[in-house]
Design a protein around this nucleic acid. Structure first.
Lengths: 340, 340
DNA sequence: TTGTATGCGTTATCAG
DNA sequence: CTGATAACGCATACAA
């Protein structure tokens, strides 16, 4: 309703309530120092005028904000939204709010959001970066905004990070396929420039060679992104291989790929797992909900988010903070797609 | 590196570069008014000092921010992240940035985020609200922050909104099942207090009665949420019905339910669509990617986001803005889950 | 409780 | 280009 001359401020409230400016401020920040009756009067005035505290001014004075931000790689990937949920749960307990930003796999967007968030003086930034070694990540920390890297390991020790042991995850996946008797296996994923993909591939190779299997029987089928569409494409390439060398088991670098592969396999008449066994990675909700429930490597998603949040908050408030790299252990969840 | 005495400001930069404060400001805001050589010198100083513009101060002065916020109902539902992507695409073209907030179906969290965003003086708010008639939505607009309701229709004409005709969507789904010869059909979804669910159910009933089919042959299987888990549960209840009256087709109020139902059906040995045909709603990416690709009602998700963004931006900048209610038309996408 | 004054960092203006 | 200065809205400290 208030179509007034814009911008209702504390002094307008004070005038309306017939009290001083300082009293309004007290109602806002130390309600106990104000008598109940005047407090009510002030609150009424605020309501009538449609007063909204100006956070810019408040923050300019206080120098601190009550919001955290999480810059995700791909807001459409349920893995990240699950991590974000963990962040929110923990943040809520500290009376902090969360803004989610989507870099959408673009280094430029990532950098632009980091700039914006620093300028906003958010209390801390969580980020799953395109490249964990990028300079601009360190710049942020150097300029005073606490920053924690999520789901990527760090080379240096100058940043906090929370990650999962992806080499181990890769081992678990491939060991499982070996246990099930597969001797021709495909690793589907890419680009290898992505740290996680590289680590999972490395783990796969380790498990394979330790089992004494010939390297050429572990096929690398690179993809250009980790999406459902690429998974379908990989399925078609798989069929193209000569039947003698054609993999009977596939380990996909994430569940999106695995679901695409699964779809393509079923559509082309192959049976899962009899003709093709599939292991995914992340164990997103849709993995268990696929019509052929997907075996997958589970990461403690919410826990990642919670822990990362604890770390930023500590970095923001504890003068004795020391950078910490936390590594979680993944776990294989066996389902029908390998255990028909 | 800059471990200095906190808070590098424009005047520090000016001192370091040996220029006046005004010049630094010009480098920041009207670079053309500064000679190339001094500009470089100032930029170097900013870099060396790790200067970060203080957005609070800037905004306090300008009274305007460059960020939009989208408050979603459920960040884990791909439908909303797709809408958000549409918002981002449009926002980027207007040089605006997007913060995503998750109300997680909680009225309280929704209200708290709205307060926070108003205090931050964001340029505009997009929201898919728990309840589109809630008072606090109107309060926001009344206090000067442009707000657009996304994916919910409005009763009044005092707010902008962008929605899809859910009654029509419901009709399309059920007409499709009728066309395929089904005479016992289940509607799965809930709670009916959710506007969308109610509308889809209404459309289903309309199509059913217009086809001259008996009302009792259209079964309502209510759920308490729109999640994969509830979909599985509904599948179990479906089996419980006496075979004579057991539905051969199911229309689910969203794809999450449909995927859960699909999973349960396949796991319990029913064939889709021969034993049970399934229609979902939203056409999220995982619908097409399900091992039995899901027939679904598609909404123009990105378009929803784009249009909503155009509306907030207009409301924020155009003094002659008039509130507009935009309604899009849904479309049935037939796939294997009904067309085996 | 009240008035009043000051500062937070940035931008804009104006005369030199 | 410089130098000085006034806002923006809020929080606080201090004296009455």
């Amino acid at each position: 309703m208030t179509l007034s001359s814009r911008a209702v401020g504390v002094k307008d409230v004070a005038a309306r309530a017939g009290v001083s400016l300082g009293t309004v401020s007290n109602v806002l920040n130390r309600p106990d120092r104000v008598s109940a009756s005047t407090r009510v009067r002030v609150e009424d005035a605020m309501r009538e005028l449609g007063f909204v505290r100006n956070e810019s001014a408040r923050q300019l004075r206080a120098g601190q904000s009550r919001v955290l931000a999480y810059v995700v790689l791909d807001a459409g990937n349920p893995f990240f939204t699950d991590v974000a949920q963990g962040v929110e749960l923990e943040a809520a307990e500290t009376d902090l709010w969360l803004f989610i930003c989507n870099s959408d796999n673009s280094t430029e967007r990532e950098r632009a959001y980091l700039d914006l968030l620093q300028q906003q003086r958010v209390q801390g930034i969580l980020i799953t970066p395109v490249d964990p070694e990028a300079e601009h990540l360190r710049d942020v920390a150097g300029r005073g905004t606490p920053l924690v890297v999520v789901d990527r390991t760090q080379q240096g020790l100058d940043l906090c990070s929370v990650a999962v042991d992806d080499v181990l995850g890769g081992r678990l996946a491939v060991e499982h396929l070996i246990d099930r008797g597969h001797t021709q296996v495909a690793f589907i994923g890419g680009p290898l420039s992505i740290g996680q993909v590289q680590d999972r591939w490395k783990g796969a190779q380790q498990a394979w060679s330790e089992a004494g299997l010939p390297p050429e029987a572990l096929h690398l089928l690179p993809t250009s992104t980790l999406t459902v569409g690429e998974g379908r494409g990989a399925g078609e390439r798989l069929v193209g291989l000569p039947s003698r060398r054609r993999p009977t088991g596939a380990f996909c670098a994430n569940d999106l790929l695995a679901l695409g592969l699964l779809q393509q396999a079923v559509a082309s008449g192959r049976r899962v797992p009899d003709d093709l066994a599939i292991v995914g990675y992340d164990d997103i909700e849709f993995a268990a909900a696929a019509a052929v429930p997907l075996t997958s490597v589970r990461q403690p998603r919410q826990e990642l988010g919670r822990t990362a949040t604890e770390l930023v908050v500590d970095e923001a408030n504890n003068p004795d903070h020391t950078h910490t790299q936390v590594t979680f252990t993944p776990e294989l969840v066996a389902r029908t797609s390998t255990m028909g």
